[in-house]
Design a protein around this nucleic acid. Structure first.
Ligand SMILES: [Mn+2]
Ligand SMILES: [Mn+2]
Ligand SMILES: [Mn+2]
Ligand SMILES: [Mn+2]
Lengths: 228, 228
DNA sequence: TTTCGAATTTAGTCTTATCTAAAAATAAAT
DNA sequence: ATTTATTTTTAGATAAGACTAAATTCGAAA
């Protein structure tokens, strides 16, 4: 029998991590998420994933048809967004209050997001003054799982002379973030595309109307801009 | 072979909880801690405890001789105090920053204490301004596991006319703490013993030179006072 | 339509942490 | 010094979450 999710569905830490991965892999694409994709994202083996998918299916947070990938259910989406909310609120706390660098917060938040206490999150949210975005520019869902997304475009997609503001990064790895720090790029920076090099697609960018810098197409592809 | 604890010994969450329990049960008494005592403290069965003791013994954080109870080792004491430090720092955070009541913090801190991040604790400590005591008056060990204990006596042991200041509680259960709130007793309150009733050992206490209140011997036994 | 390679699932093993029931050891009482 | 009562340990089971190796299914190519 399927789990009667009358009231509250409780997930283990492992289940929360898998569900979050599935949610993220679902974003954009309408087609199901494959076992291999989940395994890659979670750094586990496909066999382990199959097992977990069965369990998540029984709990009705995903729709699971063997061999055909999974779709997240509404209930699952709500739970995933709750975990994401907690993750991002903790990241804000670490950066704003404990002076962590933005490349130091992810691993710790990955643990903190599993602390079970609605009161804690409610109070933390208030303490942080109800932030709308995390240190990487990602939106923080509200307690009902609603996210207000900003329209944004990858920097490498912009044309010469277009302007905007860096609002987020696609890649939150420490290596990438430290590279941005070194270059002098940061969330909130006003930018203008000065040139796009034919040869390798790299870009020349004007930052805050004073500094110009070059970045590879690859780097620019992981910077998200709100155009203006 | 015993775990070569050359450098850093890492414990699981369950192991940390058991070790903390053993540490607390060790305090005061010089004789070993019994399997049954640990089982009672951990709300698990003695059979489960035996298993865990064997594991903790192999990791050399306790000295384990079958049938004769356990003694915590120096290494074990250091690790237990580290977990206790984290627990109490988080409790301070919850009360001071997130406005939790002192009877609401224990369960959450019981989870937060297992987050693995030396940087996090170091920063949290600084953010809280290096507190020396938690919301229940218990001392917070420093990063080397050193505790500076205050001399203190249970309120029911005091004589009539003696004075002092409430500095801690022995029982941190929500029920007891809420009772203290209702009575108007709190950490830091200046008190004087006005009377000790022959009949049932209950006490009449003057609080902050203005309010008098009656409390049972049982309640007084869980209030710790620094005499003056 | 058959075949073949990749993706996926199943089967079986391992570790951690718990339990119940049974056996063994210790401590206490005759 | 035995016998008993209590405590503790062992044996065997279960559940979660991972793995490897083997079997199965799917879909694309021939
Ligand atoms: Mn996580
Ligand atoms: Mn983030
Ligand atoms: Mn704990
Ligand atoms: Mn405390």
């Amino acid at each position: 029998m399927p789990q009667s999710n009358k009231k509250s569905m409780t997930l283990t830490t492992a289940e929360e991590n898998y569900l979050k991965a599935i949610y993220h892999l679902s974003e954009g694409g309408k087609k199901g998420v494959s076992t291999n994709d989940v395994a890659a994202e979670m750094k586990t083996k496909p066999a382990s994933v199959s097992d977990m998918l069965r369990k998540l299916g029984e709990k009705e947070v995903i729709e699971y048809r063997k061999y055909y990938g999974v779709h997240i259910t509404d209930e699952g989406k709500k739970l995933a967004l709750q975990t994401i909310r907690k993750h991002r609120l903790w990241e804000v706390f670490l950066v704003e209050k404990l002076n962590f660098a933005w490349d130091e917060v992810h691993e710790v938040a990955e643990e903190l997001e599993h602390i079970q206490s609605p009161l804690l999150i409610q109070r933390l949210d208030a303490y942080l003054n109800y932030p709308k975005f995390d240190p990487h520019g990602d939106p923080i869902p509200d307690e009902f799982g609603d996210v207000r997304a900003r329209p944004r475009v990858a920097l490498n997609e912009m044309e010469v002379d277009q302007t905007g503001q860096i609002v987020a990064v696609k890649d939150s790895s420490a290596a990438f973030l430290r590279h941005l720090d070194k270059m002098g790029a940061y969330i909130g920076a006003r930018i203008k595309v000065l040139d796009k090099v034919e040869f390798d697609g790299s870009l020349e960018i004007l930052v805050d109307q004073k500094k110009t810098l070059f970045m590879s197409k690859d780097v620019a592809g992981n910077i998200l801009v709100q155009q203006s």
